[in-house]
Design a binder for these strands. Structure first.
Lengths: 213, 213
DNA sequence: GCAGTCAGAGTTGTACACAACAGTCTAGCT
DNA sequence: AGCTAGACTGTTGTGTACAACTCTGACTGC
């Protein structure tokens, strides 16, 4: 693989992570020159990354003003959630991946991380774990376009939970999350990816209703 | 709207159309300088467009070689079709748009174009009509992410029909297409967008099985 | 005759200088 | 005092020169 494409992927994932973990809160002005300087490159390859983030709806470049992190609210994102629910369900029906020992080891690891999170709740750790866990959930299907589509939509809504957590009970959210992972582990132990996908779907739906309060 | 963004949209739509109508068959080497010259701009804005097309999977840039139109075959695209089927169905369930007089006028127009197509069948005209009609079908939902996602996946598979038509019966395909549009017109006349979406879904599915032969 | 090598053309990737633009602050006039 | 014009600063968008890379083909040595 060419190093240029690899660097592009790295920068894209890094900036996307910063945006979705609210290191760059909505409205933040990202400086192309500052970022290029930080990553030891010129503006040109960096603009390639920002362009992709703009196509994905995470930033918005305005001539003469700056590159602004987009603002998101639950109302505008409800359409995305409506679609995400169905896609989560589809993971269990469209080219489901065989449940290998590797998969079982993966879910066990997430249960462990979830247990640790419940022991010492932290909003940012929750968000990071949720992000990683979403990637794991996508690995349950071999349907590549489904994966990339669901990923795209996930990162579009990922920030909302962190924005809403001040109005919610963090400890309770962590416990619910761990509970979901445990249920998923049980489903995967029997090789039932459909059940795992259904669990994910209902979890997302309930999470939305809790945030909407 | 800034003229820069507008031009970007224009060039993107134009190149995408050329690729999906096989003006640029798979494997074609697109020259950045030649395209920049044709559109009266420099390589920089044009590369922005090509980057987007690459993210969408329609072209692939290789350093020192060129920007190649991607190759697609039905086998690799079956995953995309599997997803498209469900999304087509969702158009009728997720934020369905009210059936206005404008919508009815739209479908009537497409039936007319379909009738003309049956009168004098032509592969390229079919493909163009199919492309426009797909956009119309998306207008039946107000769910924006569903629209953009379905559009993205459509253009990923749009070329396959034109590639397969030499092994199929063009007149028969045109008749089937017209029949679908007439059924859709009847469904929309009763305000039943769910039925319209279901018709679209079954049509896509049957089209795939015919192409697979 | 054949294989290896090297030079050349053509391409995309990168860096940088400059143009275009938006917002702000100040100076000057009324 | 208030208001307007204009310069100034900082940003993104564009153009262009050059670097990095791939492939081809001819040439040279054996």
């Amino acid at each position: 693989m060419s190093t240029a494409a690899a660097r592009h992927q790295r920068l894209h994932a890094e900036l996307r992570s910063r945006i979705c973990l609210l290191d760059y809160p909505p409205g933040t002005r990202l400086s192309e020159t500052a970022l290029a300087d930080e990553f030891g490159t010129s503006r040109t390859p960096l603009r390639r990354v920002l362009a992709r983030l703009e196509d994905e709806g995470l930033v918005e470049s305005r001539h003469g003003v700056g590159t602004l992190v987009t603002d998101v609210d639950l109302a505008r994102m409800e359409q995305v959630y409506g679609l995400r629910l169905h896609l989560a369900e589809l993971v269990g029906h469209l080219d489901p991946a065989p449940v290998t020992a590797e998969v079982l080891a993966g879910i066990a690891g997430y249960v462990a991380r979830g247990t640790a999170l419940v022991a010492s709740p932290d909003a940012r750790s929750f968000a990071q774990l949720n992000m990683d866990y979403h990637g794991f959930g996508l690995s349950l299907t071999d349907n590549l376009p489904l994966r990339s589509t669901a990923e795209r939509l996930y990162f579009l809504t990922a920030r909302i939970w962190l924005q809403s957590i001040p109005r919610m009970d963090l400890a309770s959210e962590c416990a619910i999350f761990l509970s979901e992972m445990q249920d998923t582990a049980a489903a995967l132990a029997t090789g039932d990816t459909q059940a795992a996908a259904a669990i994910r779907r209902t979890h997302i739906a309930m999470s939305v209703t809790r945030m909407a309060r």
